[in-house]
Design a protein around this nucleic acid. Sequence first.
DNA 1: TATTGTTATACTCTATAACTATA
DNA 2: TATAGTTATAGAGTATAACAATA
Lengths: 166, 166
Amino acid sequence: MSTTTSRTSSDDARRDPAGSVSDACRRVDLGQSLGILLRRWHDAVDLALAGVPHGPRGFQVLGAVVHDEPPTQAALAESLGIDRTVMTYLLDDLVAEGLVERREAAHDRRARRVVATASGRAALRRFEDAVRVAEESVLCGLDDDERELLQRLVRRSAHASPSSPA
Amino acid sequence: MSTTTSRTSSDDARRDPAGSVSDACRRVDLGQSLGILLRRWHDAVDLALAGVPHGPRGFQVLGAVVHDEPPTQAALAESLGIDRTVMTYLLDDLVAEGLVERREAAHDRRARRVVATASGRAALRRFEDAVRVAEESVLCGLDDDERELLQRLVRRSAHASPSSPA
DNA sequence: TATTGTTATACTCTATAACTATA
DNA sequence: TATAGTTATAGAGTATAACAATA
């Protein structure tokens, strides 16, 4: 972990010593920058989510259960783009932690309705606060307005699906 | 892959049916949005990088070799935040593909200097063009100005290291 | 026959440690 | 002894297919 985290000197190496200036402007690094930010988000948030099974993934599921109240486990999985087989593991551990419960769906005895427990709801509130704080540190280097702007742009482009703009 | 890609209904599910409105504004989803964008970037770019060993990872290494000309393999790995052991595999396959070469570093017979071949340099140019095109599709939903703005903000915040702002 | 959820298997990535050859 | 690079092993994460119960 320590070797990977040492991204200190990367800023130096990125100065484009020999390359042409015009090329430097068109530098292809969107994916790289996104990757750096996401990794930093993980590093920051993993601490805030200590105790949540599967960390960010479990947190995401818990949040979807509470906020979106999907009718079935399958709907929950699909809404998050998580595979059903993965959802089984995630829920197993969230249930074991007492954060959510699996109940039978009223009208379909195959399906399960996933609901948060009282303690799960309370935990989610705490974790969301902690994550909000952690996220601030991810976007350091930007002032408040820029941070707000970046969040909006990222959110909007992420939710504008390329295949289904509807 | 088809199950994971069906992120269509997520926009519907994200309308916050029961939650309070003020909470919806403070919704914690930076990491989620970044994850969606990065995954979309991968999907788009993987096609453009067909033929590059290890896809985006190998492309990143090739770009660093050409643009930054790091003195040693270790420096290359550290500048990209890639583990040395991983770098070995990546370079093995880039070498096998004839894109880069390992030469002995002049003054240290332990170290290797990684240089791009002529074909590697030419390939990089082609791949960078293809990636530039692919990246456009990732940020659909934003107009040109917003795209430019997002790229700048993402790049800047990614390169502003939280641990070493110097 | 199709679908919900579970289980099992395999494949990729990554993390760690051990090894070599040089310094 | 410490470092550059390699190799081997183990652990997450994910994708796929097969299965049981129900529709």
